[in-house]
Deep mutational scan, measured.
Amino acid sequence: MDPFVVLVLCLSCLLLLSIWRQSSGRGKLPPGPTPLPVIGNILQIDIKDVSKSLTNLSKIYGPVFTLYFGLERMVVLHGYEVVKEALIDLGEEFSGRGHFPLAERANRGFGIVFSNGKRWKEIRRFSLMTLRNFGMGKRSIEDRVQEEARCLVEELRKTKASPCDPTFILGCAPCNVICSIIFQKRFDYKDQQFLNLMEKLNENIRIVSTPWIQICNNFPTIIDYFPGTHNKLLKNLAFMESDILEKVKEHQESMDINNPRDFIDCFLIKMEKEKQNQQSEFTIENLVITAADLLGAGTETTSTTLRYALLLLLKHPEVTAKVQEEIERVIGRNRSPCMQDRGHMPYTDAVVHEVQRYIDLIPTSLPHAVTCDVKFRNYLIPKGTTILTSLTSVLHDNKEFPNPEMFDPRHFLDEGGNFKKSNYFMPFSAGKRICVGEGLARMELFLFLTFILQNFNLKSLIDPKDLDTTPVVNGFASVPPFYQLCFIPV
């Protein structure tokens, strides 16, 4: 058959498939802009700032609406009420993970971030239990974070109060905490193996944040037939998995079943207990991918939040002064901060919360999916439909947070200066898919920041009023603009 005829037939089939998918069930789905064949609503979305586009569309179609990214149908949730109703009140029905062709290629359905069903539930339950087990290797997770915080302070001392970009050092600290939990080992910041790991993690975040990856996920045929950065992403992930597998083999040879040292040991012990169960989800494949998931999810998000926190503290020296006064009063100079201190430091706690609220790190979270046909607000959402959640619409709700575009710790303080919780605080998402490392991340943010401010004054290279804190939105995360500062020993 003539190649031209084959091409026309293929394009015609794709067009018909697109029209059929977009028209099927439209009477039951939430409203939304009319999609174009094949490309859907992509032309109506700013790929570099999806969150802003969703906010604009919500003003037209309401808090629940339908979009098509290519052939992929998505239902968008915008605003606290619908997000709570879906992710919390109907948590089980909305607990699936959205379709990610690239991740599915890399992870093969294993791990904790992109798995679904029984596998996801069992691996998540085990990971939560293990991360909360403060007795691994007779050292609590808090001990590990405190140790890394001391190392971080010593690295900052080496800058000798000269101007520096904190990106690298602030990236090393949370990565080392995860390494300590998974591998029972922290690395020197100049260790070549550690630097290679950091390089792969950072490069992957840069790649994932590009519009090209959005295109690959919406048109998965590209993955096999086109060159691009997605190939580098898959190569980096394969490198990390190979490295983790080597460490798993080392653990198998040296493990003491009665004295687990780290996450890998705990997983291997669980595998041993379930070795007679042919349906067990505790396999080497799941261990390797879960460890890679924890490394990827637990490094860049925390380091970016820390980097943004220091920029905001530079911009608002009056806030920094209040935090340091609270540190001096509650902790002093002669001991290290600990998590028990947080309950006695409402202002510092409010500042950490406000940093996370203000920066809105992951504006749309990772997409969910419905696990069955769901009736939601008089609409029928078919099983498997991807759910896109606007966390921006919750964290920047102007009824809950007056002047949401302003950095103001009073958003989390009552009139008496006591810490005030808010149900709208969802930087880790909400419901059954809430970030498994939430507790660890909150511990790291509090301890790293208090250790830094206990030991250093922060000095800006320019007038604080002239510092730009506008986030650089890159399609996946909101990151701070480049800046330098000086760490002046107190």
Rank of each mutant, 00 (worst) to 15 (best):
L7S: 10
V8H: 04
V8K: 09
L11A: 14
C13T: 15
L14P: 01
L17G: 10
S18Q: 13
W20S: 08
S23V: 11
S23A: 14
P30C: 03
P31W: 04
P37N: 01
I42F: 15
Q44E: 11
V50S: 05
S51Q: 10
T55W: 05
I60D: 10
I60M: 10
V75L: 05
V76D: 01
V76G: 03
Y80A: 07
A86S: 07
A86D: 02
D89S: 08
L102H: 06
I112H: 07
I112K: 03
V113I: 12
R125D: 09
F126R: 01
F134E: 14
S140N: 12
D143F: 08
E154H: 11
T159E: 07
T159N: 06
S162N: 09
I169F: 12
C172Y: 15
C179A: 10
I181G: 01
Q184C: 12
K185Y: 05
F187V: 04
Q193S: 14
N202D: 08
I207Q: 06
S209G: 11
I215W: 12
F219R: 04
K232C: 07
S242F: 06
D243T: 12
L245I: 13
E250D: 13
D256K: 08
C266M: 10
F267H: 02
I269H: 08
F282T: 02
E300R: 14
T302Y: 01
S303P: 01
T304S: 14
T305F: 03
T305S: 11
L310E: 00
L314C: 15
E325T: 12
E325Q: 15
E326C: 01
H344Q: 13
K375G: 07
G384W: 04
I387T: 03
T389H: 04
D397T: 02
F407M: 03
F407A: 00
D414W: 05
S422H: 05
F425L: 03
P427E: 02
G431T: 02
I434F: 10
G437M: 04
E438V: 06
G439M: 09
L445R: 02
L449V: 10
F451T: 15
N455M: 05
L467E: 05
P471L: 05
N474L: 10
Y483H: 06
Y483R: 04
I488G: 05
